[in-house]
Amino acid sequence: MTESLAELLELSQAGLLAAFLVFLRVGAMMAVVPAFGEKSIPERVRLVLAIAFTAIVFPAVVPEVQHLTASPQSLARAVATEVISGLLLGLILRLFVMVLQIAGTMVAQSTSLSQIFGGGAVEAQPAIGHLFFVAGLALAVMLGLHVRIAEILILSYRYFPAGQFLPPQDVMMWGVDHISKAFALSFSLAAPFVIASLIYNVALGVINRAMPSLMVAFVGAPAITLGGLLLLFATTPILLEIWQAGFAQLLLNPFEAR
């Protein structure tokens, strides 16, 4: 009976170590992932979420991590690789939400509203950027973000094998591809406001040349602000729909790169 208990204890220790390795990847991802990894969420809540996702992911990836507990060397190596893999996955998803913040900043600067900050934001940002950001988080959660995160974590062991460092060249190409797509989408979302601002400034310059004595800045400032708010009211549903489609595509295959 003592021998049986010793074998059971060894098995339980190996299982706990394997679960700990999964927790490292899940916890690193949960630290930066959108919605669940926001700074406004208490750390205890994020810890509980990480444990819950670990309980979901662990049964599906036991064969991929169990062999890493055989020796201290492989276990130490896996600690580093799992944290790096989790951070990379979380940052890719976080980058796509930052698209809305970048677009909001461009919109605010184009419409002379960049000095108005969102009081509900943890980090100071224009109110338009905060509005886009909160709306994007709500849409992400409505897309079933928690289910997609669990799927991504399980599939990640196929693309990011446990205990193996990722080739730097592949990580660079993968990251640059997602960054370029994020900035391209940010400018696309802000394009209507940038074009309207360009037309406004050109017209203001023409009026100023025709009537030098007129203080066009005092006349035009309320116009660009009102026009920007009206354009924001008209285009926000369309812009968020475009972003939602892109984010849904990312969640379906976050490992894709050109």
Rank of each mutant, 00 (worst) to 15 (best):
A191G: 00
Q125I: 11
L250N: 04
A108R: 10
M1K: 09
L47K: 05
E82S: 01
Q101D: 01
A50F: 07
V147M: 08
P63Q: 08
V83W: 14
N201C: 01
I224F: 03
A150H: 02
P72R: 08
R158G: 05
F247I: 05
G227P: 09
A248S: 08
L89K: 02
L232A: 03
L137A: 07
G136A: 10
T235C: 04
A52P: 03
I84Y: 09
P212E: 11
N208E: 07
R44F: 11
G118L: 05
T225N: 14
V219D: 03
L87M: 09
A50N: 04
G118Q: 04
L166Q: 10
G104I: 02
E10D: 14
L214Q: 13
Q101F: 05
G119K: 00
R44W: 08
L11N: 07
L9K: 15
A162V: 01
P222F: 04
I51G: 10
V26T: 05
A191K: 11
A217Q: 14
R77S: 15
M106G: 00
F193A: 00
T235K: 15
V171E: 01
L137M: 15
P63A: 05
L189K: 13
I224R: 10
Q66A: 09
I102A: 06
P63D: 07
V216T: 15
L240C: 03
S85V: 03
N208I: 00
V176K: 08
L251G: 13
S4G: 06
N253E: 11
A196V: 01
L189I: 11
M211K: 05
A78V: 02
A150W: 04
G120R: 12
L155G: 04
V216I: 15
I154M: 06
V83A: 06
H178T: 05
V61M: 10
L189D: 09
R25Y: 13
T236Q: 09
A31K: 15
E43A: 13
S213T: 09
G175Q: 05
A31E: 13
E38Q: 10
V194K: 03
I242S: 09
Q109M: 14
I92N: 00
F218D: 04
I224Q: 13
Y157M: 12
L16P: 00
E123M: 10
A135V: 05
V97I: 12
Q101T: 09
